[in-house]
Design a binder for these strands. Sequence first.
DNA 1: CTGTTAGCGCCTTCAT
DNA 2: ATGAAGGCGCTAACAG
Lengths: 334, 334
Amino acid sequence: MAGSTGRVGITDVARAAGVSLSTVSRVMNGNTSVDAALADRVRGVAAELGYSANPLARSLVLGRTQTIAVVIPDLANPTFQSILRGLSRAASDEGFHVLIADTNEQVETEHALSTATRRRTDGVILCAPRMPAEDLAALLPTLQPVVVINRPPQDGAPTIAADYRVAMAELVEHLYGLGHRTLAFLAGVGGSASGAARRGALADAREIHSDLTIIELASGVDFDSGARAVDAVVETGATAVLAFNDLVAMGLLSAVTERGIRVPEDLSIAGFDDIPFARYTSPPLTTAAVPALELGRRAWAAMSARLAGTDSPPSTVLIPQMVLRGSTGPVPPR
Amino acid sequence: MAGSTGRVGITDVARAAGVSLSTVSRVMNGNTSVDAALADRVRGVAAELGYSANPLARSLVLGRTQTIAVVIPDLANPTFQSILRGLSRAASDEGFHVLIADTNEQVETEHALSTATRRRTDGVILCAPRMPAEDLAALLPTLQPVVVINRPPQDGAPTIAADYRVAMAELVEHLYGLGHRTLAFLAGVGGSASGAARRGALADAREIHSDLTIIELASGVDFDSGARAVDAVVETGATAVLAFNDLVAMGLLSAVTERGIRVPEDLSIAGFDDIPFARYTSPPLTTAAVPALELGRRAWAAMSARLAGTDSPPSTVLIPQMVLRGSTGPVPPR
DNA sequence: CTGTTAGCGCCTTCAT
DNA sequence: ATGAAGGCGCTAACAG
């Protein structure tokens, strides 16, 4: 293939070094059964010609690509960005490449996209919070090896998740402790696993505190939906708000401030996730710190273990840490 | 290969349909020269067996992977995130996959990483703001097809860039118009192309306004470096600050507010980029809106054109729009 | 219109 | 220790 493609192939090296293809291949793969002197010569020639093996051809014959796929719902969401970053760096440290698939919050495309990316990679790391449980269970076997992020434990796939439920419970207790008895919950988009976990915590809290009212309000998962919820929130008469995430909290905080409502004097607002910006709003946001970077790292570690045949824990759960900042305070006197 | 790998290959389909490999291949590739009835039967069998062509094998023989590589300096930077997102969605719309390479701000690894990713893809989109110009020029030919983001026009590679210079000039004029005569510039990390552009605008401004003093201060490109710069900024006696980017501006804003310095009454602060969070600080940040999503889209469009053999403009420049918010105001009376 | 025959570039038995 | 040959799964001439 000499000059045909412009790229130098193993054939060129073999010819230039006066050896066979196999020898070059062996040398390039560090096979020690090659005479040291010969090996050196081959390496010299390879270096001189700037040769390195075509990864595509290697992938085909070896059946591995040194690449993994990461499927995430929305590249614009800071939490997924952090997961991706943790993942990407960890994988890169072990010489793996990362193919990203942003499903753009379209649950319908998740199946096709993960299947498609799987075929060009050695495995997929799936972050699909809203895929129905049965669909997920049916999809997993076709994706092996696969690791799942932020879903309950699964059969045949390691799971890395943050415990949204205990974190939410902590947040509620925090507000209850401050004297709040009427809470609004900006519920985010329906059908997500972490949403169900949050809701579970709220149900528990209502059980525990009979004098606690929590009003669930529909919302999206971004700034705008938080800002748009302002009227609905005010109408509930709640003295504190649990936002689905920090984005929603920030949107609400901004809209509420424009209305002249003071936070936390008139209204307490708690976010969720602790995205990097949460500490820079004013007041800074009280929230639950989901360890997204670590989630990403662990997801890679699980994948790496599966690829190596090592077995890893079937399910690891990270506990978000509540971080108290200025956006929550005592219930206003009435 | 029937059950050997567990995957169904073209051979299985051919056998099951009682036709040759070529026929299956033709059908799967929409080659119309196949008898309609036969084609239907083959499609039926393929569907039944859940067959679809192995992308690796196709890549090897076709010489294309339907994948592009994106090299970016830091996945944690909101601007690069937006570029990536715009890129990823545009590419995905045309059926292309995206391999990401986060160089983690290590200029030394940019060369190796872009070369490595190039070999598994059909082209690379390079975002390497701090790579020395000569290194870039030398690297480009080896990466073809390649498109470059946020660098001056290059030989043999389309360039998509925002005009940091005119945007910075606008910001300076804005502050000058408000009466500010002593400005501090938080200069970011040295050696970046956009940094040079910013500095150029500052030099111009000093030419134009002989009564204008701009003091350059070292800084990083993130929150912390902005916060850390607070003492140095105060020492300069500047009444307004041009931060390298919104991150730095937000860090400074936060630190300055803690000091009891009021923004913009005591000090004006301007950011750069208009990241999504810039409008949610308090006061909201005056900044220059770099159209990062659009940068990403255009970069893909340029790549797509090169891949198709179409020619695209060798260099497109987008003008950031200044957006005036609350963090800048009239110079304080003295 | 369909089947047969070469590869794509590389790794890996199998001989020697 | 080295070379020759086969094949990874697929597409693209080349025949019929």
